[in-house]
């Protein structure tokens, strides 16, 4: 059960981001780009599993410093990319409501490269850690297959949730879809940023690892299922440092208003073209 929850937590964030990305491409009629998402996912999985195996079974291990640095850098890159994705979505929402001639902007905004890089980072950010965890399970499988089974099941549930999110999001009304997925992504990105800060604090690059803003580990144990869900989606840490909290709040304070401004511009009356629903009366009725 504990291994199941770790697998679930490690997979949730990637499933969430990729799920939204896929839903977004479907909603904007860019199904041609979907395969690039899967290429990105496959590439990230292959690299993670490959390095994970090398570090687990090979003669060399990854030093703690390198692991933290890699985690920190990937987190910050991921925040940048998710933020870009949010505004890209907001702009596209505007374009979609506008005239057809803007279709060109749409195509330019979402190329195979950007879509693929997004998928690589979404999966790759926690990919190595997840791979190391899985390989540890594979190593233990000689004695007991329970840990590996739990870990794989946890990941499978995370992936299933990702698909469910895509399905659900595809059914939403277009306006709601853009708003809700974007707001969700903003909170995901803020969480990733705080997590990256925590990594850098652990590595000693940033100070204040032990000055906690709050500690609710008693109420929300990180090994509980709800602690797992909160950590897996929003990167909520029950013991949050002041620096993490400050950065988290600052990110939201900057990005939320910026986003709402972008959306409001998208909703201005000028771009909502009148619907052509009136059907001209047919004069010559068939006899």
């Amino acid at each position: 059960m504990a291994n199941f929850l770790i697998g679930l937590r490690e997979g949730l964030e990637a499933a969430l981001v990729v799920g939204i990305l896929v839903a977004y491409l479907i909603r904007t009629d860019r199904r041609d780009l979907l395969r690039w998402v899967w290429y990105g996912v496959a590439l990230a999985v292959a690299i993670s599993l490959g390095f994970g195996a090398l570090l687990t079974y090979g003669p060399r291990g990854l030093s703690f410093e390198a692991q933290e640095a890699l985690g920190g850098v990937l987190s910050i890159l991921a925040v940048g990319l998710i933020t870009w994705m949010i505004f890209w979505m907001a702009r596209t929402a505007r374009t979609l409501r506008g005239e057809l001639q803007h279709k060109l902007d749409l195509a330019a905004a979402a190329g195979p490269t950007s879509v693929m890089v997004m998928a690589v980072l979404a999966v790759g950010r926690e990919g190595l850690e997840t791979a190391l965890f899985l390989w540890a399970g594979a190593k233990a499988a000689g004695e007991s297959t329970d840990p590996l089974l739990g870990a794989v099941l946890g990941l499978a549930v995370a992936i299933a949730l990702g698909f469910a999110i895509t399905k659900g999001a595809v059914r939403l009304d277009l306006g709601k879809f853009f708003t809700w997925t974007a707001v969700l992504l903003i909170f995901v990105a803020a969480g990733v940023l705080a997590y990256g800060i925590h990594d850098l604090q652990e590595a000693g690059v940033l100070p204040g690892l032990n000055s906690l803003a709050f500690d609710v580990s008693e109420q929300i144990p990180p090994s509980s299922w709800y602690g797992t869900l909160l950590k897996g989606t929003l990167n909520f840490s029950p013991a949050t440092t002041w620096l993490e909290l400050t950065v988290w709040l600052s990110y939201l304070a900057v990005v939320l208003p910026m986003f709402s401004r972008t959306v409001r511009r998208a909703n201005d009356p000028g771009s909502s073209s009148s619907a052509m629903t009136a059907v001209p009366a047919n004069r010559g009725a068939p006899v």
Binding site: A2, L55, G61, L132, A136, A140
Partner: peptide
């Protein structure tokens, strides 16, 4: 923190190199 390894589930063995 000089070194850290997380996510050691029950029944697992993980390596920490520092």
């Amino acid at each position: 923190i000089v070194g850290e390894v997380e996510n050691i589930g029950p029944g697992l063995e993980r390596k920490m190199v520092v």
